[in-house]
Design a protein around this nucleic acid. Structure first.
Length: 194
DNA sequence: GTATGGATCATCT
DNA sequence: GATGATCCATACG
């Protein structure tokens, strides 16, 4: 299968628009073991300065959040407990906004994913932000790169029939930011988390 | 089906 | 030393 990276202009949409546009696109990771990919079916937006739940709240700029201050299309990976999460950097330069990829639907490299997620049924390979990174082989080594060229790219996929929006997940002590409807997913897709 | 607690580590105070 | 943008196993209804 041949993948065509989305153009830079695709990533330059407003963050909430991009979060919706990413649904149905294909996330592809190439490693020495082979290629693995999946359709993006769930995303979550983090709008820097105004978002108490974001790492970049109040323009907090540290070694970790640095890449969010760069141009759209860059890769922001982050280690949470025992897992690695992956984000698409959006917004203009100096605007620390990003979109968390929460779930994908397995497409290519099924045997590879099955090995990486051994002991689980297919549905549980990629239906969560920490799971899909493991299934696709995404690590902190991808931090700071961009989605326009290998080994990690976002490619054109399909156009979802219906997109649903709702409150974010996994945020409970961050005040009102918890209730912002900044989570998007493809309606009725079985790989969406929860 | 829901609820709870432990794992385990980079990052920040 | 404290804190999580999580996952998984276990317990219970």
């Amino acid at each position: 299968m041949n993948y065509i990276p989305m153009p830079l202009s695709f990533f330059q949409q407003p963050t909430l628009e991009l979060a919706k546009s990413l649904l149905g696109c294909v996330l592809v990771k190439e490693t020495e073991e082979g290629k693995a990919s999946g359709y993006i079916v769930e995303t979550e937006a983090y709008l820097g300065p105004a978002d108490r739940a974001a790492h970049s709240y109040g323009n907090r700029r540290t070694k970790r959040t640095e890449v969010m201050f760069h141009e759209a299309g860059r890769i922001y990976t982050y280690v949470m407990h025992t897992h690695c999460l992956v984000n698409v950097v959006s917004g203009e330069k100096e605007k620390p906004e990003a979109i968390l990829i929460r779930a994908v639907e397995p497409l290519e490299g099924l045997e590879l994913m099955e090995r990486r997620r051994s002991g689980h049924v297919k549905k549980n390979w990629t239906n969560g932000p920490g799971k899909l990174t493991k299934a696709l082989g995404i690590t902190m080594e991808d931090y700071g790169g961009n989605f326009l060229e290998p080994p990690l790219i976002i490619s054109k996929g399909y156009r979802p029939e219906e997109i649903v929006e709702g409150k974010r997940i996994g945020i409970d002590n961050t005040g009102e930011a918890r209730d912002y409807p900044w989570r998007f997913w493809v309606k009725d897709n079985p790989y969406v988390s929860r």
